[in-house]
Simulated scan of single mutants.
Amino acid sequence: MAVVQVINALSARTFESNALIRHLVLTCLCFNIIFRAVHVPGRINNIVDSLPLTVLDIPQTSADGRLFPDSHTRGGVATWPPELWNMILGSLSVNIRKSYLLALQEILRFLGKESLEEVEWPLPVSTLLAFVMHCKRQGKSRTAVSNRLAGISFFSRLQGFPSCSALFPIKRAMLGWARESPPGRDGRKSITIQILRNILKCLADVCSNEAESLLFKCAFSLAFYAALRVSELAAHAKHGPSTACLQWEDTKLEGKKLIQRVPRSKTDQLGAGAYITLHEWQGETTCPVHCTRSYLQIRRSTCGGPLLVHLSGLPLTRYQFARVLHLALTSLGMSTVGYSSHSFRIGAVTAAAGLGLQDSEVMAIGRWGSGRFRSYVRLPGYFAVKGQP
């Protein structure tokens, strides 16, 4: 009766049984077969006893329950067509995709394999633990190793096996590592409104012409007041796809307010988009509405695509954004250590928290879905009131 229940439920409590059930289901799917098990009492079940063993053709399994030879468990994904791989990898963000492919390269190098086709899945726990220790001895951080395990788990789950990060020995090893070396405080600094004022003021000396100065004034102002990630603001490169950043056709100036659509973000990989409304701040040199209006007056109206473009029509890139920020801070006599493109977003959150806004309001400004923003706040005594992030 237990066998009947397991077959009809298509699930069991042991890995070995699940491996057999998976083989049965995949075989039946190939031939469009729907099956259901029925219990036959032993006293009348004489059909199976009359069959020779050669007819039964029972599949062989390894000690850990893996069936072989079977393309599903041994290099099966390596035979998938490129179109399918593009679809699967396209479900990941650019940075996550790079991280997972790097993890695959490192585990292949550790195993001494040349390709994914040579790897037998699932990887033994002992191999995974040895890989973790190898990475630690190389000086990799715990976060980096966690990312590697996530990448390995991705390719493991593609073949129907559980995530290696969820294995008990792996979880305990990573937890022990975390306790012996607790994470340090985020060292990135925030850009305050006063620093932003100084940056915009010195852009005339940093940039090559007035048009470039207006471009970066608009970029820096939007980055701060809209709490934008640099990936939402600027293009990844001068040439190539640039539809994920702010678009010219999604920018609307209506009286004393600016309505801007963010087409895609780190937490919006499907591109549902989000709208941001910014209001004019009379007399403020960093006002995003004023800076955007001034920039649009010199922007080529015939040039569609990204909102922030040079006079040549090429889009503002993330590298250029960070580089001009670095030059502006240097021009002001400030140290550039700790400042990055993300400092605008950190500054926006810190300013919002300093004004006494509720957590839900701060989350709406930065389009967060959780309290993760608290780690960005750079206010003394803030966590004593709100609690640790």
Score class of each variant (00 low, 15 high):
Ile170Lys: 03
Cys135Tyr: 00
Arg179Gly: 13
Gln105Cys: 05
Arg179Asn: 10
Asn198Lys: 12
Phe110Gly: 11
Cys164Arg: 02
Glu117Gly: 14
Gln159Cys: 01
Arg197Lys: 15
Ala173Asn: 08
Leu104His: 09
Ala204Phe: 10
Phe168Thr: 08
Ile152Ala: 01
Ile195Met: 15
Leu149Pro: 06
Glu114Met: 11
Cys218Asn: 00
Ser153Ile: 06
Ala150Asn: 04
Leu149Ser: 04
Leu196Arg: 13
Pro124Gly: 11
Leu123Glu: 07
Phe154Ile: 02
Ile107Gln: 06
Pro182Val: 06
Lys136His: 11
Leu129Met: 08
Gln159Ile: 01
Gly139Phe: 03
Val132His: 07
Thr192Glu: 06
Ala150Ile: 00
Cys207Gln: 14
Ala173Gln: 11
Ala204Val: 12
Arg185Tyr: 07
Lys136Ser: 15
Ala211Tyr: 14
Trp121Leu: 15
Ser165His: 01
Arg172Leu: 05
Ser208Trp: 11
Gly176Phe: 00
Gly160Lys: 02
Phe168Trp: 13
Val132Arg: 04
Leu196Cys: 11
Gly187Phe: 11
Val145Asn: 04
Gly184Glu: 11
Pro183Asn: 03
Leu203Ser: 14
Asn147Tyr: 08
Leu203Phe: 13
Ala150Gly: 07
Leu128Ile: 14
Ala178Tyr: 04
Ala219Asn: 03
Phe154Arg: 01
Gln194Asn: 08
Leu111Thr: 07
Leu215Gly: 00
Phe168Tyr: 15
Pro122Arg: 03
Ser190Val: 02
Val206Ala: 06
Ala130Trp: 07
Cys164Thr: 02
Ser153Arg: 03
Met174Pro: 15
Gly187Cys: 05
Leu108Glu: 03
Leu129Gln: 11
Arg179Ala: 10
Gln138Arg: 08
Ser208Cys: 13
Phe168Asp: 02
Thr127Val: 12
Gln105His: 08
Phe220His: 06
Ser141Phe: 04
Glu118Asp: 09
Pro162Val: 05
Leu102Ala: 11
Leu102Gly: 09
Asn147Thr: 12
Arg172Ser: 14
Leu203Asp: 12
Lys140Ser: 10
Ser126Asp: 14
Arg188Tyr: 12
Leu102Phe: 06
Leu200Val: 04
Gly184Tyr: 02
Gly112Phe: 12
